[in-house]
């Protein structure tokens, strides 16, 4: 129950930060951070895939309704949630049987970097491709995807550093 409430808290917090602040950040017209995908990335590795998909769909739709882009974020984040399990399996080389929350302290720095990079890249590619559908320009699109991915990664690692550190300290 407590865990569920915590999850709802993250949901509301990330959506508000995304739609009120981060969606309005465009450095030189590029580089928009999509921090809210951290919600999907940070869920427990043992979570049922169907439940994961539904969480992702819900947060995507909420962000979409605020941003007047119905379907855009929803489609992208659902795809990321669907691909999360295989990516996670591929990145963690050693056999980890028990469930874990994907973060630096449980996975190690480089596997975690690979995992977030892949997911963020997929997400930003889909979002930008749908968004620039009407004015297709390959160079512009590539630049947008790369800058979006980089700044989203930076944001995710900041959140990771600030919020997750407490957790690992509690444990030891």
């Amino acid at each position: 129950m407590l865990e569920f409430l915590e999850r709802i808290g993250w949901f509301v917090g990330l959506v508000l930060v995304q739609v009120l602040v981060l969606s309005h950040v465009h450095i030189y017209g590029y580089a928009t951070p999509f921090l809210y995908i951290f919600f999907v990335l940070s869920l427990n590795s043992g979570i049922d895939r169907n439940i994961l998909l539904i969480w992702a769909f819900a947060i995507g739709l909420t962000v979409d309704i605020f941003c007047n882009t119905p379907g855009m974020h929803t489609a992208a984040i659902t795809l990321v949630a669907f691909l999360r399990q295989p990516i996670l399996k591929g990145v963690v080389i050693k056999e980890v049987e028990e469930e874990f929350e994907p973060c630096i302290s449980t996975m190690g720095f480089f596997p975690y970097l690979k995992y977030t990079l892949l997911c963020t890249l997929i997400f930003c590619s889909v979002v930008e491709m749908i968004d620039t559908f009407s004015f297709f320009d390959l160079k512009e699109l590539g630049l947008k995807i790369i800058t979006d991915t980089l700044i989203t990664l930076v944001c995710i690692f900041c959140v990771e550093a600030v919020f997750r550190r407490d957790k690992s300290e509690e444990r030891f």
């Binding site: 895939r49 169907n50 998909l53 539904i54 769909f57 995507g60 739709l61 979409d64 119905p70 379907g71 855009m72 929803t74 489609a75 659902t78 795809l79 669907f82 749908i130």
Partner: peptide, 18 residues
């Protein structure tokens, strides 16, 4: 069934989009 759910949710999002 997660494949089906995935396809179902994606269809909903694209319907919304268009």
């Amino acid at each position: 069934k997660h494949w089906l759910l995935f396809i179902f949710l994606e269809v909903i999002s694209f319907v919304l989009l268009f």
